[in-house]
Computed example of a mutant assay.
Amino acid sequence: MSEYQYYEFLAIDRPLTDRQQVEVRALSTRAHITATGFTNEYHWGDFRGDPSRMVERYYDAHLYLANWGTHRIMLRLPRPC
């Protein structure tokens, strides 16, 4: 059976700066990266980044799907005042 993993991150509250886009590009040379998103599919290998850290530093939402049944969604919520 072949492997399939899908990673998507969204920046909703604030777009990534050019510098931040360069930083996330270092984690994947094949990902589609814009100021508001990061998407990548893997059919072999694995993502080098830490999704929790990506949401903490850059993005507001994360979706992960794998063909072996793992599904994950992360949302960054604002701190209460």
Rank of each mutant, 00 (worst) to 15 (best):
A31H: 15
A31T: 10
A31Q: 13
A31P: 12
A31K: 10
A31M: 09
A31G: 13
A31C: 13
A31E: 11
A31V: 06
H32N: 13
H32W: 05
H32M: 12
H32V: 13
H32A: 14
H32T: 15
H32R: 14
I33Q: 12
I33P: 12
I33E: 10
T34R: 09
T34W: 06
A35T: 07
A35F: 05
A35G: 06
A35P: 03
T36V: 09
T36P: 02
T36I: 07
T36E: 11
T36R: 11
G37D: 06
F38M: 06
F38G: 10
T39L: 13
T39Y: 13
T39W: 13
T39H: 15
N40K: 14
N40L: 14
E41R: 15
E41W: 12
Y42C: 10
Y42L: 12
H43C: 03
H43L: 08
H43W: 13
W44F: 15
W44L: 07
G45W: 10
D46R: 12
D46L: 11
D46G: 11
D46M: 11
D46V: 09
F47E: 13
F47D: 08
R48E: 12
R48W: 14
R48D: 15
R48K: 15
R48C: 15
G49C: 04
G49W: 03
G49E: 04
G49T: 11
D50W: 02
P51M: 04
P51S: 04
P51C: 04
P51A: 02
P51K: 03
S52P: 00
S52K: 09
S52W: 02
S52C: 03
S52H: 08
S52Q: 04
S52L: 01
R53C: 03
R53N: 04
R53A: 09
R53W: 01
R53I: 03
M54F: 06
M54H: 01
M54L: 05
M54Q: 07
E56N: 01
E56P: 00
E56G: 00
E56C: 00
E56M: 01
E56Y: 01
E56K: 01
R57A: 00
R57K: 08
R57D: 02
R57F: 00
R57Q: 07
R57E: 00
R57I: 00
Y58P: 00
Y59V: 03
Y59N: 03
Y59H: 03
Y59I: 01
Y59W: 13
Y59T: 02
D60T: 02
D60F: 02
D60H: 05
D60Q: 04
D60V: 05
D60E: 03
D60P: 03
A61S: 05
A61D: 09
A61G: 08
A61F: 06
H62S: 10
H62R: 04
H62Q: 05
L63W: 14
L63M: 05
L63I: 09
L63F: 10
L63Y: 12
Y64F: 11
Y64N: 07
Y64C: 02
Y64S: 04
L65Y: 05
L65I: 09
L65Q: 10
A66E: 11
N67W: 14
N67T: 08
N67M: 08
N67S: 10
W68F: 14
W68H: 10
W68Q: 11
